[in-house]
């Protein structure tokens, strides 16, 4: 199980995956918006999306778990 965490504080702009999705390494899971930038959050490894813990528009903290891969 791999927890994908926010690398910086920001808001969730777009969720680009869903529970059960098969993802490859480097696939975009969601996009954060922070510091006037769209910041893609990518899968650190291939796997299945087990949980998506955030919704679009939600503000997340650095280190907060966004997605859990299995």
């Amino acid at each position: 199980m791999t927890e994908v965490k926010a690398e910086l504080v920001g808001s969730v702009w777009k969720v680009k995956t869903q529970v059960g999705a098969q993802v490859a390494e480097e696939d975009e899971l969601l996009i954060l918006e922070s510091m006037k930038m769209e910041i893609p959050v990518t899968a650190p490894r291939a796997g299945t999306v087990k949980e998506v813990r955030v919704k679009e528009g939600e503000v997340v903290k650095e280190g907060q778990v966004l997605v859990v891969l299995e």
């Binding site: 910086l8 510091m35 930038m37 910041i39």
Partner: peptide, 10 residues
């Protein structure tokens, strides 16, 4: 590096 933290400096 805009690909990481949007290139913001920390």
């Amino acid at each position: 590096q805009p690909m990481q933290k949007g290139g913001a400096l920390d």
